[in-house]
Simulated scan of single mutants.
Amino acid sequence: MGKILGIGLWVCIVTLGAVYGSIYLATAPAGPSEEETKKAALELVRGEPITIPVLGGGDVSGYFLARISFMMDKEKVKGQALPTTELMTDQLFTLLVGNKMVDIANVSSFDVNAFREKIKTEMNTRLGEGMIDQVLIEQLDYVSKESARKAAAGGSAPMEKTTVVEGEQVEEKPASSGH
């Protein structure tokens, strides 16, 4: 009778252990998701603040104040021979000078997503396909020529500007410039 009771108790313990083990393994955390893996392969490269003249009628009518940063492929950034930030600034200036980007009279009609996509496409064409994954617009403001002159003359009032895009907050992590 004692042996049968011992064997029954043993079978119950083994069964409970097997059920516990299978539940534990079934609810084990999955590996990193595709989005987390992609994010880990990207690096933030901060853009420099740049001033882009707006040309109209053969004259400068105002200035865009811009700071655009990029989420870039870490491996491709390491392979760059030139400083990445300066290369991006040059490309942005080439892309945007003289380009009628925004109708200042109707700023609400500005298509931010199309603007980001154009920058991404042009930058990837120059730097290499897949280099730029995401375009982050930290600042995009417009200052008229008259307002800039008043501010340069030492006016006490703050410089009047039109915010074209509300800037995105970008983490202040030091980024490698590819060196």
Rank of each mutant, 00 (worst) to 15 (best):
V164T: 05
G178W: 03
T163F: 09
S61D: 05
P53W: 00
V60R: 02
K118F: 12
D133F: 08
V54K: 01
I137A: 02
E75M: 04
A28F: 10
G155C: 05
L25Q: 14
I13W: 13
V54M: 02
G57D: 05
A30I: 08
A151Y: 09
L96V: 02
M123V: 06
L140V: 04
G47Y: 01
S69N: 06
R116M: 11
L96A: 01
S22L: 14
I132M: 04
E34R: 08
S176A: 07
M72P: 00
G31T: 07
G79Q: 13
G17P: 04
K76G: 01
A157T: 11
I50N: 03
L16I: 13
N106K: 15
R67V: 07
G57V: 03
M123D: 03
K100P: 05
L25M: 14
F70G: 00
P174G: 04
T163C: 10
S108A: 15
Q80R: 15
G6Y: 09
L140C: 03
V164G: 02
G62K: 00
L25A: 14
V165P: 01
P53M: 00
Y20R: 11
N124H: 10
A66Q: 01
V143C: 04
S147M: 10
D111L: 07
I4A: 14
E34S: 09
I23W: 13
A41D: 03
T85N: 06
K3T: 12
S61T: 12
V19T: 15
D141Y: 06
G130L: 06
P174L: 08
L136F: 04
Q139L: 09
